[in-house]
Design a protein around this nucleic acid. Structure first.
Lengths: 345, 345
DNA sequence: TACTTTTAGGCAATCGATTACATTTTGAAT
DNA sequence: ATTCAAAATGTAATCGATTGCCTAAAAGTA
């Protein structure tokens, strides 16, 4: 495929105006050492000639791309797409562009994607880790080059990488305590890969609440899957087979909670009377499902925005990123009917 | 921010091996004019020295970026994030990368984004138009340069731009016919900007079904909003104020249908007995809401994949894009309880 | 042995913008 | 008119990889 007409470059503009390319370059970038009149004629000519700055050439010379890379587990999850939308907004408002890829929850793709990002010389990286990522060797090349890497939501402890997340332990503790307060004593927990902070932390919050209330933690009450819709259905099947039905289910995300809930309802289980339910994330489905789902509100949009702003501030101001090591965002428990047993009076 | 150590370039490798940079370049790209043994030593040295190819330099020279640009109205909608996930998969499998931005439904941002994409010299562009885009002048610079622009879902008729979409008229015709077959005679249609094919086509399908069944089309039965969740609530309010309640609502997306439905239910309206409901898209919420929502299944993932593959094929094979002008994907009517009145026996 | 062909690799220009440094122009002050 | 700092512009190197063209060495042929 041949590009149509030849591209207009600053040299073409220079030639037309009988000035040097250097001046044209300065004129186009608002450099102070160009007179108002020359600048005006440069802009006019550029416009007339259909000049489009070649960012690639510019990037090569200036050794910065004004591009931010994003690696997330999946693009099509409610939470992640919110997060990315937030990132996009912040990034776009600051004249950066966005390189995006998904790991599909595998470390292998995460590594490949990181490589591509590095080759494309992104100025910074926002990462939310895949389920099975065991180490972050693949981000070392960035750190060696002083390219900032910020972890979002699914984080990893590393001295040089700031992290942005919520207090998962606390949120899970609160939600579990709430279920207990509603009279539940046998709470099943649906979660995913315990390699990830979000799931280990939620699990420990859950355990902590049990312990504080004198309830025995039961290994078999924790069902590990991938938190997909299908995982919810599978969990329901598993629950129905238990010799003693649980009186509550706390799922580490709403998708899984909702599908599990619906599946159980199909088998005649009443929510919350027989089994109370709680999820995590406050997905759109949470207030559509009947009964509405108790959950932790924790929208990705702001998280994405905050992360992107932090990154951009660092890139622009050269402010020391190390200073902000962890940024813990607010989350809130939202109690809905799916867990209200006592007040059912 | 200073980059840590200096980057390793092909010149460094060349120097170390006492060969020319040209040979190193050829060795790294599997050029046939390099002997096996030299190639091997080049790869070894590159690996040892931590060489990372600079795509920017490569892009500048080769005048191609291996980057595909995507402009969508919003990143955080179920449909669009599915679409992007599909695009990402196809793109990533073919060694391309993805530049993404959202127009937030305004033409102004669409124009800005297109500019950035052009400056970054994307090899091709996938676009789904904003609500208020009136013309596509902003894509002309791409076409002039023979950079392919493909419209997806929200398309625009243009001789040089292939389009990928579904037969919206037919789908809307079918869904409306279905409602009529269920005994509905006064069907409200919720939709959005009629500048967009998806909404005008659905409207005409709706009209066509009415006409074929001898029903009068009523201007006031069409409520135009932005199809957001809030728009659904607003529509419900408007419906409740109507002197004669409609017996069905056909919304141009599920989000809006669901929130409208729930709002009406809050006011004692029974679905489908009082008002039957149908949506569009088969969003996850469609089978969570009670009663489950009748809709048109039309997932974005495949559409994104198909679009990206078409674009990449063209870029790789230089196959003539003009030949594929329109690609109409399959969609299917999914009937659920929200519209089943007759069989309610 | 002499000559042709093939193979491997080098030279140097190129992509387009940026920028340190040098030079010229302007205009104010003497 | 002369001087000189300030303002405006020019020169040329640079970023790092690619590639057309050329040469040297190796292999094949007569």
């Amino acid at each position: 495929m041949d590009k149509g007409q030849k591209e207009v470059t600053i040299y073409d503009i220079a030639e037309k105006l009988n000035i040097s390319a250097a001046t044209v370059s300065r004129g186009l970038t608002n450099h102070p050492r160009v007179s108002k009149s020359t600048r005006k004629s440069i802009l006019k000519a550029a416009d007339e000639m259909g000049y489009r700055s070649n960012s690639i050439a510019s990037n090569l010379r200036s050794k910065k791309s004004n591009v931010i890379g994003v690696i997330v587990p999946r693009l099509n999850s409610s939470f992640m797409s919110d997060l990315i939308a937030g990132v996009e907004k912040a990034v776009n408002n600051n004249n950066y562009s966005l390189f995006i890829s998904q790991s599909l929850e595998t470390m292998q793709k995460e590594v490949t994607n990181a490589r591509a990002m590095l080759n494309n010389r992104v100025d910074g990286l926002l990462v939310s880790l895949a389920y099975d990522t065991t180490d972050i060797e693949h981000f070392e090349p960035f750190l060696k080059r002083n390219i900032p890497v910020i972890f979002v939501d699914r984080v990893f402890e590393h001295a040089s990488c700031p992290q942005i997340f919520i207090d998962n332990t606390k949120a899970a503790y609160e939600i579990t305590s709430h279920l207990i307060a509603e009279g539940c004593k046998n709470i099943v927990h649906l979660t995913a890969s315990l390699l990830r902070n979000v799931y280990t932390d939620r699990l420990s919050g859950y355990k902590k609440a049990l312990a504080e209330n004198g309830l025995q933690f039961n290994e078999s009450s924790v069902i590990i899957g991938d938190l997909s819709s299908q995982a919810g259905i599978d969990a329901a099947t598993q629950i129905l087979k238990m010799e003693k039905l649980p009186d509550a289910v706390f799922a580490a995300n709403d998708i899984c909670a909702v599908s599990c809930m619906i599946e159980l309802q199909k088998h005649g289980i009443r929510i919350p009377e027989d089994i109370a339910f709680a999820g995590f994330n406050n997905d759109p489905t949470a207030c559509v499902v009947q009964p509405n789902l108790t959950t932790v509100n924790y929208k990705g949009y702001e998280m994405g925005e905050v992360a992107a702003k932090l990154l951009i501030n660092h890139l622009v101001d050269k402010s020391d990123l190390q200073q902000t090591h962890s940024l813990i965002l607010r989350s809130e428990l939202i109690i809905r009917e799916s867990s209200l047993r006592s007040k059912k009076s």
